[in-house]
């Protein structure tokens, strides 16, 4: 059943521009670094990161990854929820023979798939930037993939919150403002105490050894929020 639901959710996303967001986010980040490294090639590649230009490129990109992930989670969930909210399609969707918890799960999976695609696109487009700039050494595939994946896992609590709020609240301005505010605050993640969840994506990028641990924290906190959201969604009255 979850497969059928997911396939209908993907069908409902046709022509909504959601996949453009998935595409433009990572490609935009890579393009920014292409500009950064292209314009300051002599300083960045031959001086500052001369010993390992790939690590330099990944590090510079990483500064913008947390805010990009938070914004993506906010924007994607708002767009996914909007499909059902706009013409009040919930009452049709939930009067079908489906379990509400599975409807909730399907919306989550749709967003997760989009975020994973964005991670892969980020790895690919940053790799292309490095290759075009003729960086030496092998392409660090693992580092490129985890550049998006670890901070995404560490940011999952935000997705849990967005899922819950966008799918249950009538007023979408609340989750959207909250998401944007959190994205902006996350820029200062590196200077926040590590127990603040908003700091976690910055922590996993700065400290490779902590990456797995903080990704785990992210998943754990997400699981709690997901469960609460799913229960609320399953029990609430549908207007």
């Amino acid at each position: 059943m979850i497969g059928k639901l997911l396939s209908t959710d993907l069908l409902k996303m046709r022509r909504t521009g959601i996949w453009w967001v998935v595409f433009i986010g990572p490609v935009g980040l890579a393009a920014m670094q292409a500009l950064n490294f292209g314009l300051r090639y002599d300083y960045l590649v031959q001086d500052r990161y001369a010993s390992d230009p790939w690590a330099g490129l990944i590090g510079e990109t990483g500064m913008f990854v947390p805010i990009a992930i938070y914004l993506a989670m906010t924007l994607l969930m708002a767009m996914i929820a909007n499909i059902e909210n706009r013409q009040n399609a919930w009452k049709q969707t939930l009067a079908l023979p489906v379990r509400r918890s599975q409807v909730f799960a399907s919306k989550f999976l749709a967003c997760l798939i989009q975020l994973l695609v964005a991670c892969v696109l980020l790895a690919a487009s940053v790799a292309i930037v490095g290759l075009v700039l003729k960086f030496e050494g092998p392409v660090p595939i693992i580092d490129l993939l985890t550049l998006g994946a670890y901070p995404m896992l560490a940011s999952l609590p935000m997705l849990g919150l967005m899922l819950w709020m966008t799918l249950t609240l009538r007023n979408q301005a609340i989750p959207i403002s909250l998401g944007i505010a959190a994205s902006l605050v996350s820029v200062f993640g590196a200077s926040m105490p590590e127990i603040v969840p908003l700091a976690w994506p910055a922590v996993v990028l700065a400290n490779g050894e902590a990456a797995l641990r903080y990704s785990g924290f992210g998943i754990a906190l997400f699981a709690v929020l997901y469960l609460l959201g799913s229960i609320h969604f399953s029990r609430k009255d549908v207007a």
Binding site: M1, S7, R15, A89, K91, T93, A95
Partner: peptide, 30 residues
């Protein structure tokens, strides 16, 4: 609910899809 068809108040639809696609979203579940 598998044996019930319903229309509640004003119509629900996905404006960015055509009629066939709208019905397809339901057909896949039924």
């Amino acid at each position: 609910l598998r044996r019930v068809g319903s229309l509640v108040e004003y119509p629900s639809y996905y404006g960015h899809l055509n009629a066939v696609e709208n019905l397809e979203t339901i057909r896949r579940i039924l």
